Simulated scan of single mutants.
Amino acid sequence: MYLENIKVKQFRNYTELDVALSKGINVFIGENAQGKTNLLEAVYVLGMAKSHRTSHDKELIQWGRNYAKIEGKVNKKSGTIPLELTISKKGKKAKANHIERKKLSQYVGLCNVVMFTPDDLQLVKGSPSLRRRFIDMEIGQIQPVYLHRLSQYQKVLEQRNALLKNADGSDRSVQSMLDILTAQMIELAADLVHRRLRFIRLLRDWAADIHQSITDGRERLSMDYRSSVGDVSEDMELSRIKEVYEKAFADVRKKEMERGLTLIGPHRDDLDLAVNDKNVQTYGSQGQQRTTALSLKLAEIELIADEVGEYPLLLLDDVLSELDDVRQTHLLSTFKERVQTIVTTTSVAGIDHEMIREARSYRVKNGEIVETVD
């Protein structure tokens, strides 16, 4: 799949913009704070119905305006689909083929995107929340219902934490409400973790091969899902995972009442990464950590293509200058002529890859974009 054009109105620093895109590599060049990242964010939001930079949608709306709109035509094997997303203070309205989708889970997945930013190099050595977000957003693209379930889980978690924070252990009504919320949490948590385990199994296979290729066979990447309840594995049925959670919540209940906080669940899980059987988060060199992060992102592209039958868009936000020649080559050459790629950079001078110099180029300045002809 590829995006034929991206059209925005009152989004970030863009009052109005309509850019036709090549289905190959598109490079947007400009100084910092001119709007390069905002453009990539618009493409990402069009596909995912949420930003990778902020959880506050109002920040996407141009200052002093009431709404922002993003439009684009995604070309797929099944045909061209016009997409439209409007963001206002009342919420988001999504349309596909000019028909409004009542639930965002009916919209997400129509245009698959993979974003790679300098922050993703922190995916390995950064906090567990970064790895959880990576897992959540990618499963959401191939299983949009996952995002709906995750949203439900987060709401129950908030309610449960609020109850625990002010709980009176002797109040029967409080205990009864806690039982209800715990039962809801077990149902949702087991479902989320069951889906995560399947995703990790698939991702591991792709990432291991890619990592081995980048390192010429010198390094072997492995990964394991680390659950806060400990005893879950990829071969478990959903019903068995529920049983594990039921026991875990019963065991930790007294401690949760004392702490006033939910102590277990998918929101506390992590992804363990190892290179040659050594934890790369703790013991890996910067080069190994970067190669691992790159392998995960490249594996993500292959996994999505395998699951949905088409390659996603690849968005590279000022990341090429952070990679050496070997990693640049793997990032760009692996998907040559198969993946539409949109790149931002302050200059192509520091990027040695010939494919960038042959790409369609645009100049970005003060919220305006002009295609360049060299």
Rank of each mutant, 00 (worst) to 15 (best):
L164N: 00
H194W: 08
A183P: 02
R290Q: 15
R196Y: 14
T15K: 15
A305H: 14
G91Q: 08
L332G: 10
N32A: 10
F134W: 12
L40T: 02
D325N: 09
Y44R: 09
F134V: 05
D224W: 02
E138T: 08
R65C: 04
D251W: 02
H52G: 04
N38Q: 07
Y44I: 04
E322N: 12
A20M: 12
A33T: 15
K76R: 11
L163H: 00
R131S: 05
M1W: 14
V319S: 14
L314D: 12
I264M: 06
Q154E: 11
R172K: 12
L315D: 10
R131H: 13
K77W: 04
Q286Y: 14
M115E: 14
L21S: 15
R101A: 02
Q122A: 06
Q154T: 03
E234A: 05
Y283H: 04
S22Y: 15
L314A: 13
K95C: 07
T346E: 01
V370H: 12
A68G: 04
Q184S: 08
N97G: 13
V244I: 15
I135F: 14
R338A: 13
R149A: 09
Q34Y: 14
I369H: 03
R218Y: 11
Q154K: 08
I87W: 01
M257D: 06
S55W: 12
M1F: 13
H56L: 09
G109L: 03
D374R: 04
P118Y: 07
L331K: 06
A250M: 11
L121V: 02
V339E: 09
L17V: 08
F249M: 05
I70K: 01
K155Q: 13
V252Y: 15
L60S: 07
F28W: 15
T345F: 05
I264D: 05
L313C: 09
V8M: 02
D325T: 13
F134L: 06
S228Q: 12
D251S: 05
Q152I: 01
V145Q: 02
L202S: 15
G217E: 13
V19S: 13
H353W: 12
T54R: 11
K297G: 02
L40Q: 02
M177R: 00
S222L: 05
D231K: 14
L296W: 01
S78K: 09
I304A: 09
H330N: 14
R363C: 05
R240V: 10
D270E: 04
I29W: 14
A299D: 00
